[in-house]
Amino acid sequence: MLTLRIIPCLDMDEGFVVKGRRFRDLKRVGDPVSLARRYYLEGADEIVFLDVGATVKSRRIMIEVVEKISAEIFIPLTAGGGIKTVEDIRSLLLAGADKVSLCTAAVENPSLIAEASSRFGSQCVVISIDAARAKNSWHVFTHGGQVDTGLEAIEWAKTAEKLGAGEILLNSIDQDGMGTGYDLELLRRIGEAVKIPVIASGGGGELGHIYDAVILGRADAVLLASAFHFGTLTIPQVKEFLRTKGVNVR
């Protein structure tokens, strides 16, 4: 049986791991290579790197970091942030990423999803959806949570799947960095709408939140940043807890 994946996420700015709340107030929390090494040894199932700096310099450093990390860490690596073209994707894959995560560029230019998946395979195209509640639905935001596109998150997830996305990385902007639990309704609704794996992101702060994301939100994987960086939770602790609850983990 397939196991639930526990994925630490490193948001990076100019080579430093940063973390904020609701996509704001970013603070530096460490060095990506040593953090990635620690998470690998603790049993992380994958690692996600997102460049939130979105400057030319920040992106160049990101590629160097991916190159360094992939020489000593042998689990799937996803890189994203600021990707605009198939060439950007290619350079990250060549640096050692196994998958790329597309957010703003995919919304602005959906054909990039089709292009990337036909060229590199859908298994390496992760569509990152930054969503926030808007009355009875959820809107897709771009540019690091700054721009409300008005696009319906559930519809966008279906479109992305049709275009060839291999996975959905679903971030709740409302819950990001709050440590008060995932947006379970959003998770479940998207999970029911698509057949590709959905990674829950934004809000995981306690063991119970992760369990809820899997059972109530039907997530295929959970992504955590703050809780791991600040040591509120550790990967072995999360896996042990889930195991005792009957969730299959590695």
Binding site: S122, G166, P197, D220
Partner: peptide
């Protein structure tokens, strides 16, 4: 869910 993606 196909493809089969993950640890098994």
């Amino acid at each position: 869910k196909v493809p089969h993606i993950g640890w098994n």
